[in-house]
């Protein structure tokens, strides 16, 4: 017995050594494997993402026209000018308007349409679905150019149609100072509505049908099923779309830039991203532009971290 035990013990010891050795090689191998996959990505990320961010921060402290070396150190001069510039304040307000409108109008409507298209047995709903999704496929530039024609004040489609329907109709300047922000929002809804709709429809597919059936058996109304079963179960998708809509309205550039030729008359549709391009790059002030970009970055980054941490985190955890 004891012999066996000793033998066993020594064997166990040997085996343990083996395992330890194995562990060391596996851990080395594991690290090599991790490095093999991470290093190239990390290198690209460092060179093309982290490095430009760091450079922007540096540029933002200089008055610089983008040519030649950085010589004119300004401390926080660019930032002071930025927060004192009424056009920047305006563009922050406009960005917030577009953001709120897209949260309060675009997402609820997309949700409503997605629910009615996927649940009801509407005839031709597949065609309807495709039709609503088409605008999302268009490039932003093409979208903006099409809408420039549609909204043209003298012979655009909207004014022509309204003119033939409404008596005494006076042509409206849809891209004029008063209406331009809302026209831009309408175009953005037209463009991105289909994207949110498709996300919601995919999410509806994942709601277990038996839960809905069970609720109905227990006497829940259709509205009750929606409110207490379907929509709550779509939670992760809804939280994701809110995030995308907010970040999307901050980043939106091409459509607004083209529709408003650089922010609209009297900066009536200037948003942060167009302000950055116009006052920073188009006018040869990359130092100033970098200050704008840094402010925009800090805001978006802080928002993303907080939103991920407090709102979307539960969706990732098992």
């Amino acid at each position: 017995m004891s012999l066996v035990n000793t033998r066993n013990l020594s064997e166990v010891k040997l085996a343990e050594d083996q395992i330890r050795r194995d562990k060391r090689t596996t851990s080395l191998r594991k690290w090599l494997t991790v490095a093999f996959f991470v290093v190239p990505g990390m290198a690209v990320f460092t060179i093309f993402v982290l490095n430009p961010i760091a450079q922007s921060v540096r540029y933002s402290f200089y008055d610089w026209n983008g040519l030649g070396p950085l010589t004119d150190y300004q401390e926080f001069g660019n930032y002071e000018r930025l927060f004192a510039h009424d056009v920047f304040i305006k563009s922050v307000q406009h960005t917030l308007v577009i953001m709120s409108l897209s949260l309060l109008i675009q997402l609820p409507v997309a949700l409503a349409v997605a629910l009615s298209v996927s649940r009801g047995a509407l005839p031709g709903r597949r065609a309807f679905r495709a039709l609503l999704f088409i605008p999302y496929v268009f490039s932003e530039i093409i979208t903006a150019i099409i809408w420039l024609y549609v909204l043209h004040p003298n012979d655009g489609l909207v004014n022509t149609v309204l003119g033939s329907l409404v008596t005494d109709y006076k042509n409206q300047a849809w891209l004029g100072a008063d209406l331009v922000l809302y026209s831009v929002f309408a175009v953005l809804v037209w463009k991105y509505f289909g994207f949110y709709m498709i996300l919601y429809m995919a999410s509806i597919q994942n709601v277990p049908k038996d839960l809905e059936e069970a609720a109905r058996m227990d006497g829940a109304t259709e509205l009750g099923v929606l409110r207490h079963i379907t929509v709550p179960l779509m939670g992760p998708t809804i939280r994701l779309t809110i995030y995308l809509a907010i970040v999307g309205s901050i980043q939106q550039f091409a459509i607004i830039w083209i529709l408003t030729t650089g922010g609209g008359i009297n900066n009536s549709a200037q948003v942060i991203s167009t302000y950055l391009y116009k006052y920073g790059l188009q006018r040869f002030k990359p130092g100033y532009g970098s200050a704008i970009a840094v402010v925009l970055f800090v805001f978006t980054f802080a928002f993303s971290i907080l939103y991920q941490q407090f709102i979307m985190r539960r969706d990732y955890e098992d």
């Binding site: 009297n266 900066n267 116009k278 006052y279 188009q282 006018r283 002030k285």
Partner: peptide, 13 residues
């Protein structure tokens, strides 16, 4: 350029 652009914008308004 920043000033020239501003002249264009201001006169537009």
């Amino acid at each position: 350029p920043a000033l020239g652009g501003e002249v264009n914008d201001a006169v537009e308004s």
